[in-house]
Write a protein that binds this DNA or RNA. Structure first.
Lengths: 350, 350
DNA sequence: GTGAAAGCGCTAACAA
DNA sequence: TTGTTAGCGCTTTCAC
């Protein structure tokens, strides 16, 4: 390519029709692989497409079709900052996507409740909805509901927590095992070489993302930091109050804790505990998700690092992937890969 | 919004024309703020737009306009992996943007050479090019060339290294001061509390990005790690061979170096030196830009962390910003902010 | 099996 | 100052 400033106009279906000596309608039939065209004609058209290097103008196609994309997000109803930020991103993107014939909406479902989730999925009207992005636990009933949606031609992606055995078209979220590994590497390096204990706060071992993080964390801790003793997880159910209550007891039983990995939501409870600690007794803390609270904690030196995933990217990526799946065009996997972001107070976005 | 599955069709200019009791052409004139419409009529149309909540369909507008975006990237001609990856991203995106009426091309210009850069910019044909993304040093002659382009209606963005005083419309790249700060925080924590020296490798102090990184680095080192002695920068001019030659001398003169911050390109030279070190003598290394070479170094334990910026994101962002500027539609600053990525071997993309 | 023609939402001559 | 009309590239009846 290099500098190619002259702009040879792209060929259109008119050019193809002319070259292949058929009508526009026939070209269209071939392009959309609709039936009712003789094999020989199909070949002619394909040849013309190849010869001219034709690429279809999706915008024009969607305009003609009158296509309006309608996507629904299904989110947990417990409201922590991460979910709130997801909601905010959906609403913001919904506004700006209006000019692109794309409608976004969301429904909320009780957290950690597979039955409610399956019901919510079943309530989605497959005739008006083009795609659904689901953030929730995976169970057989959920899988059935997803399969049913898909059978009705709806695109389904999983969000934040994958549901690998289900029928989803794509997973939009980080590799949670790798996120756990990253947390371990960071925390292990930050606490230094002394022998001591590490506390892991988790949400629910039913949540696949939480489980995977713990797996990755343990793996790297065992491999690279054998002098550290990893305590059994504290299940906080993403509930700040519960966490605040559980922490003092656990830490009293284990006076040797110099590091904490907060692998789920509920940072607020942890922070309420941390501010009560004397400066020099405070453990090194690695937590998840950059939110107003955790960013302040980073600034204040209460947290030492944050592992995060960009909620804006999650939402935009979900929409792009659902749209591309709908249009049967390829997706840019590099662009859609959700990064495991590492934030220190120095590289936080403003 | 919540669940809003019924899809009320968006109003079109036809609806506005009907409500405002004017013709399509008049609505169009108002929408594009073209002259020749009575004030009163303008008001009527604006009222109808507001009442109906109209948003213009950009795809249809571009189709009708027959608009084809033509963007040119100006890149340094010295080829290190980072620039190679930028080129790869441009070529890849160019291919996929064909379906979106957008043409991408690039020109290469001698690195660290303001005169050549200004000449290259002057050679760009403002009548066929809609936007230019420039990665290069800022000098008065460059500023003049940029101003000239802009005067001819071309959108100009700076890429990777900002040129704040010039006339560019936007800067696409990381905050390099913050990147330097991040490197310092990471390196300072990783090397531990012992008194020792840190070596900083830079490219050229003429390059604004390199300079800014050094500033940020020094700032945090002085603030948080006063026990570390930061040596004067080694200017490697992004040249692996030069770096490989300079390193042994410098390190012999400063036997106490336990950490290296490689703040520019030329990692290859550093690596050639590192493999010759005995395992236990190797310094802790924080480098810039995730590339095939640096990712392997991370895996091999030769590098301890990488500060990076996503080349795919840079290129996509540049294109989106140039397009939005051209269409005078708002840009999503959160989406266009280039992250300061921190990579450990655990969170590298595959 | 294939083609002609109308139309998606918007723009741009050209008239009036 | 305003309106009419013919497209942009593609899809979709409805004929043949």
């Amino acid at each position: 390519m290099k500098q190619d400033q002259d702009t040879p106009l792209s060929p259109t279906i008119n050019d193809i029709a002319r070259v292949a000596e058929v009508s526009l309608a026939t070209v269209d039939r071939v392009l959309n692989s609709r039936p009712g065209v003789r094999d020989k004609t199909v070949q002619k058209v394909h040849k013309a497409i190849a010869d001219l290097g034709y690429v279809r103008d999706t915008a024009a196609a969607n305009l003609a079709r009158g296509r309006v994309y309608n996507f629904v997000f299904v989110l947990p109803s417990n409201s922590n900052e991460f979910i709130a930020s997801l909601v905010g991103q959906i609403e913001q993107l919904a506004a700006s996507l209006r000019r692109e014939r794309t409608r976004l909406s969301y429904v909320r479902v009780a957290a950690f409740d597979p039955v409610a989730l399956a019901e919510a999925i079943d309530r989605i009207d497959a005739s008006t909805v083009d795609g659904v992005a689901i953030f929730g636990p995976e169970t057989p009933s959920v899988r059935d509901s997803v399969a049913h949606l898909k059978a009705n031609g709806v695109t389904v992606v999983s969000l934040v927590a994958d549901v690998p055995s289900s029928e989803r078209d794509h997973y939009i979220g980080v590799d949670n095992v790798a996120a756990g590994r990253t947390a371990a590497q960071l925390l292990g390096r930050f606490v230094g070489p002394q022998e001591a204990s590490i506390l892991v706060l988790t949400g629910s071992m039913l949540a696949r993302d939480h489980l995977e993080r713990r797996l990755g964390f343990d793996e790297v801790m065992a491999r690279d930091f054998p002098h550290l003793n990893i305590l059994a997880s504290l299940e906080g159910r993403d509930d700040p109050d519960l966490i605040e209550r559980l922490l003092p007891t656990t830490l009293a039983e284990n006076p040797n804790v110099i590091g904490v990995y907060s692998s789920a939501a509920g940072n607020e409870g942890l922070l309420r505990y941390l501010v009560t600690c004397k400066r020099q007794d405070r453990p090194i803390v690695v937590a998840h998700e950059l939110t107003p609270l955790s960013r302040q904690a980073l600034l204040d030196g209460l947290f030492d690092a944050i592992i995060s995933q960009d909620s804006g990217h999650l939402v935009r990526s979900a929409v792009r992937v659902m749209r591309a799946t709908r249009d049967a065009i390829p997706i840019n996997t590099a662009q859609e890969r959700i990064r495991i972001d590492v934030y220190l107070k120095e590289n936080m976005p403003p």
